[in-house]
Amino acid sequence: MRCEECNNLLEELIDGELNEQASRSVTAHLASCAPCAGLHQRLLAEHEIYSSYERDIEVTPILWTRIQERISSEPVRRSSIKTGGTFLNRLFGAPRLSFSVAAALVVFTAITTVATIRLLERRNVSTVPSEIADTHTSDEGAAEDTQTPSPKPDPRENELPSAQVPAAVKIKHTAPPLKATPDQLVRDAEQKYVTAIAILAKDVQKRRDQLDPVMLTQLDLALTQIDRTIADTKKAMRENNNDPNALQYLLAAYSRKYEVLNELADY
C-alpha cells in the first residue's frame, strides 16, 4: 500500500468504517511506515480531544414534564391510541376537521353500510326463493338436485305462519323494489369517499411544508399502496361481476385512505 492511499483511509480506520481486509492492509502499512504512523497518532490524539468534549447540557426532569403536558393535551389522539379509536370519536374530536368533512364522512359511512346490507340482502333474496320453490314444486329427490350453494332449508319453515316466514322472503314481498344496482351503489359510495378524501387531501396539502419529511415520505408511500389497492379491487369487481367481496375490499381501501389523510389533517 502506498502512503497516499493509506492516508486517505486513516480517518475511516479511526471511524471503524473500513472492512477487515482494508483495515488489515492499512494497519500493516502503519507498522512499516513512520510518517504514516505519525499521522495516525495525530489523528488519534485529535479524536481523543473530541472525546473529552463536554457540552453544557443537562436533561432536567422538567423537560419530561413539559413533554408530558404537550402530549397529554392531545386527548383525542391519546384516546385513539389507547382504545384503537372509534371512527366517530376521531372524526368529531379532531379540531381541524371542518363540518363539511364530518358531514361527508357520515354520509358516505351511511351509504356504505346501506349499500353493503342491500347487496347482501339481494343475494339472499335471489337464493332463498328458489330453494323454497324447489321444496314446493319438487319431490325430495328433486330438492336434492338443487344447484344453489346455500344450505338446504328446513322443510318445516314452509309450514310456518306468515309472521314467522324468514326475513329474506318477507323482504321480497314487503320492501320497495330495489332500483339501484350494486354498481350504482358502489359508484355512489365511491363518490362520497372521493369527495371526503379530496377535502382532506387539500387540507393536508396546505400544511405539507409543516410536516415532518420522514412522515411525508411514509404518507406518500401509504397513499400509493392504497391507490393501487383501489385500482386492483375495481378491476376485480369488473372481472367478477361486482363481486361483493371485492366491493368490501374497495370500500375498505377508501376508508383506509380517509383514515391516513385524517391522521395527517389531525397532526
Binding site: 436533561v59 423537560l63 413539559r66 413533554i67 404537550r70 402530549i71 392531545e74 389522539r77 415532518d212 420522514v214 412522515m215 397532526y267
Partner: peptide, 12 residues
C-alpha cells in the same frame, strides 16, 4: 427543540 423532537416522535 428536544422537547419538540420527542413530542413529534410521540405523534409519529
Amino acid at each position: 427543540l428536544t422537547q419538540k423532537t420527542f413530542v413529534r416522535a410521540y405523534r409519529n
